[in-house]
Design a protein around this nucleic acid. Structure first.
Lengths: 253, 253
DNA sequence: CATGCCTTGATTGTTGAACAATTAAGATAT
DNA sequence: ATATCTTAATTGTTCAACAATCAAGGCATG
């Protein structure tokens, strides 16, 4: 670049009203309160989670910094944030890479899912009906995405459903740990986009059935169905991983 | 004013062109393998977790950077790491502060503990005996610390016990989420250092009893005892918080 | 031909400085 | 006494330079 070019003004739109705006919404918008490192991390995370950046892709600092229009230091902060979320892997003096999910990792993540989701269903006994509103909304989102035949939206709605289920625990930290796990898992789910047609129909039926069982207070039946559902999903991700090549489980090179 | 004047002088004595010093001792410390941001974060975390830096303490960048002998940018990375672990709180254009634990936060953390620990006991059924070795080691550590009457070591051993229990799940991610929660909880446990005498004896007995029940395969009894133990601990932390006057910022006269 | 050293180029790790944005406090005027 | 202005201090962001390390290619040697 031109070293003598003074940095006069970045046409960064300051979305925060400097005037005393009387209508300042106190909603915690996750983006309005973020600095540039956060938005860079958000942008990168979005590209990773929707599969635009495949696992293993190198993320050189200079290239990414120029692409995202931030300085190298700011990009480093963003990379650190992603590393803390498990989305990228770091090694000293080597480029950060989009994290690869091993078969063992998948099994670990589903162990965690089983624990958090099944216990959430158990904890739903005796809760008021409004606790299930969010799950119902996810069902609507899911059916809408299914009719449009949009694989990405379907996965999105699927995860929203399970997140809503875990939220029945009523614990902020349990929810955030689960969300982090789902983010990591989506690294593997991105492999399924092309060949999930046969399972999509059953997927919608599964979720609708679970929702109905929840509403009727039949926790045991719901747990049973959920367990089967998770088992099938795990199997699917594992076979997709195996097909994709990176075995990475017990047998070393 | 001359905004684009490059500064070339640099009085740091660096022998760049000469031969590299051959007498570099390559000690394999676990810390020498990390970068300076990591060691700074580790140092700060240690001071926070052992209560040397009380919750609410401001952490100005320049002051900390000079104290830890790192640059401001590197210290910022360290602060970000701690924020990701929940040990410091960030606000735009304000100094980072040591995180304060609210009563709601304590309740949330104990909800998480109950879920992860009780289910771990349940999952211990049918596991080989060697799975409990680590728990036994924690018991030894605990009794040793109790005889020395060292409150910090006692808390350390207590947490090591529960961490070993959760490890029965066999899930890397469940364990790390739990560990993060315990770290956060230790912000509140630091308040107990002064007045935990009456409960220490019962604490050792509790853990030894739970260990015995685990070894004998009596999961139900162990769960019952563990639930009571966690409830008492939660109560203790909550009353300590209340007594400490969780006013956060020091509003002196 | 194979092997090991060495140079070289590229990339990350770390630092210091500079400026912009924002907050908190002190001073001033009304 | 209250409101407003000024000012100092701190964080947010960028840049440029240097340091440390890694990956690859070239050269000499056996």
């Amino acid at each position: 670049m031109n070293p003598t070019l003074p940095r006069l003004s970045r046409e960064r739109p300051t979305a925060r009203g400097s005037m005393t705006s009387p209508a300042t919404p106190r909603t915690h918008d996750p983006l309005s309160d973020a600095n540039r490192a956060d938005v860079a991390a958000h942008t990168l995370a979005s590209r990773i989670l929707r599969g635009e950046l495949a696992p293993g892709t190198r993320l050189p600092e200079i290239e990414l910094a120029t692409a995202l229009d931030v300085s190298r230091n700011t990009l480093r902060e963003a990379i650190k944030i992603l590393a803390a979320r498990g989305l990228v892997q770091l090694q000293r003096h080597r480029s950060a890479t989009v994290a690869t999910l091993s078969a063992d990792g998948v099994r670990d993540l589903y162990r965690m899912r089983r624990l958090l989701e099944l216990s959430a269903v158990e904890a739903s006994a005796g809760q008021p009906a409004e606790s299930f509103h969010e799950i119902g909304a996810a069902i609507g989102q899911l059916t809408r995405a299914a009719t449009l035949d949009d694989p990405v939206a379907i996965i999105e709605a699927d995860l929203a459903f399970h997140r809503a289920v875990v939220r029945l625990h009523g614990s902020e930290r349990i929810e955030s740990a689960f969300t982090a796990g789902l983010d990591e898992l989506r690294l593997g789910l991105a492999l399924l986009d092309a060949r999930t047609e046969p399972t999509l129909g059953g997927l919608v039926d599964d979720h609708r059935a679970m929702y109905g069982l929840l509403l009727r207070g039949e926790q045991d039946g719901c747990r049973q169905l959920l367990r089967a559902h998770l088992g099938a999903s795990e199997e699917q991700v594992l076979t997709a991983l195996e097909r994709a090549g990176n075995g990475g489980s017990s047998n070393g090179p």
